[in-house]
Amino acid sequence: MSKERDGQTIMETQMASASSGELQAPGDGVVIKAENLWKTYDMGEAIQVHALSGVSFSIDRGEYVAIMGPSGSGKSTLMNLIGCLDTPSRGAYWLNTHLVSELSDDQLAYIRNKEIGFVFQTFNLLSRASALHNVELPLIYSGMPQKDRLEKAADALRKVDLADRMHHKPNELSGGQRQRVAVARALVNNPSIILADEPTGNLDTATGEEIMGLFERLHQAGNTLVLVTHEHDIAAHAHRIIHVRDGRIERDERVD
């Protein structure tokens, strides 16, 4: 019941926004559409810091995009917005037809659960849980019964070649293996996008390449990937690079 209520509110919010007529919802094939995103932090004494000042872009289904920029460029803020961890101060953000910029905390949680698979620099696995249980987590929060859940989680781990490590805890796995568990966890709910934040930052070069190879495979399989990084070598794996600097998009280039 309560979950339906969430959905109801999401729909109502979106209909209200759509009927206001100012904003144009994205068409088919568009996964992400950002329109004039601003993120402003009040630092007190009427000092305002603009982490993002009017960012607009869109990402199509199946794209492999890197968001690049030095630290302080606003790329982390942008990533938080794309990942529905935060909402913009101004502007509109659609993720797979959900107008995310208008949603409440719990609705954001729902979108994160359904639409986004995170891969973090520091893996962010639960240290006391097995690889399998870590991968199960998103399915737990979507309320899937245990039997289906275990099947799906094991499947996801098989996809990243960790079938034989399912019952190991993170501290019994190598860095590369941990990141692969994280990728499996990101994949398990069939999200609209996989959002990777410096996924190779804590890995040596060889292992990093291995993970990037895995991403390429996911891309080939039709997943939409968004990669946030400050390293050129890593960004070069993507097929499109959005350069961010001083809270604005500096350059949006296709690489092939």
Binding site: M1, K3, E4, G7, Q8, A25, G143, P145, R149
Partner: peptide, 20 residues
């Protein structure tokens, strides 16, 4: 947008959400 509640419906149709 109308397809959204349907997707949500799937989530709650499992029925065991809270229990899980």
């Amino acid at each position: 947008t109308a397809s959204l509640p349907h997707a949500l419906g799937v989530r709650s149709k499992t029925g065991s959400g809270a229990w899980v």
